[in-house]
């Protein structure tokens, strides 16, 4: 009877020393589902940042763009270029989707690396980038899957499914498997990279609190940006792939 509280106390002491929390979540109970509330909160913050900055920037559009408008037009141009190179001529309707993916992931990643989330203490778990929770990345990857299925079906109709037996029907199982591996690889790549970035920073901070984590944080910023770019590029490439080859 006495041993268990004692060991718990020891564990708690060890836990406080380590100061690294993994797999701790702040749960909300909504309609029988357990919701990771810290992800929702940070997602809302990210969405607020995006929408607010966009609204402020394009509130008063000029013919000759001023600073904020200029920056957002530059971002839009970048996204359009990306979509155009990946999707091809009919990239127009997909720019909003690709842009949403890229901007949300990018701002999420950078918010995790730049905003001092840990100032705010939750009852359980801690605030971090929304993309370091696998639910977010799986949701984004499944949206991408739905998008490229929709793109292919709306472009080619039922003959879209002919691509499964091309070039030979022998490849049918592999082609079907591809539809599962695409969202899987997308979600795990993003999740793993961001979680690893943040963990490395957290571990280094818990070991050496000053100066040493800074290079790793810059590496994290770089990787975060690259990951957002990769996710958007791959999503666009999948959409383009399912729309091409209509000879």
């Amino acid at each position: 009877m006495n041993i268990i509280p004692c060991s718990i106390k020891t564990l708690k002491g060890l836990y406080d020393i380590s100061g690294v929390e993994v797999g701790q979540h702040f749960y909300w109970q909504i309609g029988g589902f357990q919701i990771h509330a810290q992800v929702l909160i940070t997602s809302w913050v990210v969405i607020t940042i995006l929408l607010g900055s966009v609204v402020i920037a394009v509130r008063n559009p000029q013919t000759i763009p001023t600073d904020g408008q200029n920056f957002f037009e530059y971002v839009l141009e970048f996204i359009r270029d990306l979509s155009k190179t990946q999707i091809g001529e009919e990239y127009g309707p997909w720019v909003p989707f690709i842009g949403t993916m890229f901007l949300f992931i990018f701002v999420s990643n950078w918010s995790g690396a730049l905003l001092p989330w840990k100032i705010i203490e939750l009852p359980h778990g801690e605030l971090a980038a929304p993309t370091n929770d696998i639910n977010t990345t799986v949701a984004l990857a499944l949206l991408t899957s739905a998008a490229y299925f929709y793109a292919g079906l709306s472009k080619k109709g039922l003959s879209y499914f002919e691509k499964y037996i091309k070039p030979t029907p022998i490849l049918l199982p592999i082609n079907i498997l591809e539809d599962f591996t695409k969202p899987l690889s997308l979600s795990f790549r993003l999740f793993g990279n961001i979680l690893a970035d943040e963990l490395v920073v957290v571990v280094l901070v818990s070991l050496v609190p000053l100066v040493i984590p800074i290079p790793v944080m810059f590496l994290g910023l770089f990787t975060s940006g690259i990951q957002a770019l990769i996710f958007a590029t791959l999503a666009a490439a999948y959409i383009g792939e399912s729309m091409e080859g209509h000879h």
């Binding site: 840990k118 100032i119 609190p209 984590p213 800074i214 944080m217």
Partner: peptide
């Protein structure tokens, strides 16, 4: 419950 973590080293404020 919710609260503010005022530990500057733990919140990584300086590095940030």
């Amino acid at each position: 419950s919710f609260g503010l973590n005022t530990d500057i080293l733990a919140t990584n404020l300086i590095n940030l």
